[in-house]
Design a protein around this nucleic acid. Structure first.
Lengths: 192, 192
DNA sequence: AGTGGTGGCTAACAGCGTTAGCTAAGGAGT
DNA sequence: ACTCCTTAGCTAACGCTGTTAGCCACCACT
């Protein structure tokens, strides 16, 4: 019963975990340009080189942040699809699952905009796959498949959702845009 | 007759134009991390500080690149919609203009993937609106409105297209994805 | 009583964007 | 022809970034 559970994240030492946590707050509070080894260390009360006793380099720190971002997003999406809902019991699913698409999109938007800097970090540029927990990426993408029942529609829906979110976060839409309506149009279109 | 013409880009001195041109090639050939004031200067046979005689700073250089990217993309999109086609003669347009959506998406994808680094630069992060030619952004976005006839569908379609392109460029889809099919699904969905 | 690992530290390096200040070349004006 | 100003290059340097080397104090274990 229920959705597949997340693959366990690559384990970190308690101190490393604490560093990643602080980095998470630093990123969300002060933006990506503030996520600097020196200011991160300062917020921890130590000097920058000491960070390298716990993490190999900055990309490793970012990978850890990305893992946490993907995990949080996916958990949010699975919850939105319904907590105890069966994943594979309806084989190809007869489409027309309008409600699921709406709920999925609402959850995606809410989670992304609640931590925009983390979302941007998770999705900007090439994914450091080699540094990520195997299976995490697939597991985090699966809700889109469960909501559409078709891999192509799932990818298309994900693209729409990501495009909307990143353009909204980056302020690329005209300032007076009624984005709620645009989201609703997209949901309708993909529910048909 | 025909589409509205592009607003004229902010004029640059011939030498600045040459620098921007070189930067364009450097970016596309060697990626964004190679677009450095020092290596750009080196490719021009001068030293980095000399660049500041022609451009105020690096964001100004990037803004000039973005202007060129937006211009090229928009011209490509207008061409795909049909060269002499009237823009405003069909008022709200009765939807169901399937062919236009397909052509628009094909052109968008082709242009973006033909210069992926420029596309990324044009769309990553917040747009430096203050540095851009006024009207350019609206003009470049109008083809989506012309293809859908509705501002909300236009924004949704743009989001889908941008999401697809940026995820494709960044290699975020599983490596064996049949993206042609996903694009086609999206086009169908937005043509209905 | 050592002894090794852990987790701090300072000093330093290379590369980044950028500024200050100097200088050689070229054109304009008297 | 001589001066003068602008143009467009230069070197040196600053503050920032990530990162490495090497040193030292502490703490657990034998």
């Amino acid at each position: 019963m229920g959705w597949p559970s997340a693959p366990p994240l690559s384990p970190l030492t308690p101190r490393a975990e604490q560093i990643v946590d602080t980095a998470l707050h630093l990123l969300e509070d002060s933006g990506p340009e503030a996520l600097t080894m020196r200011t991160l260390a300062e917020r921890l009360g130590i000097r920058a080189p000491s960070l390298y006793k716990h993490l190999p380099d900055k990309p490793a720190l970012e990978a850890a942040l990305i893992e946490r971002g993907l995990l949080a997003m996916a958990e949010h999406l699975y919850a939105a699809l319904g907590d105890g809902e069966p994943p594979e019991t309806q084989p190809p699913r007869p489409l027309r699952e309008g409600g699921a698409v709406h709920r999925l999109l609402r959850a995606y938007r809410a989670q992304a905009t609640s931590r925009p800097n983390l979302y941007r970090l998770c999705t900007a540029g090439e994914l450091p796959r080699a540094r990520l927990t195997p299976g995490l990426e697939d597991w985090a993408g699966a809700p889109f498949y469960h909501a559409t029942g078709d891999p192509y529609r799932a990818q298309a829906l994900w693209s729409f959702a990501h495009g909307m979110v990143i353009l909204e976060i980056d302020g690329r839409f005209p300032p007076d845009s009624a984005l709620d309506i645009t989201w609703a149009r997209g949901a309708e279109v993909f529910s048909g």
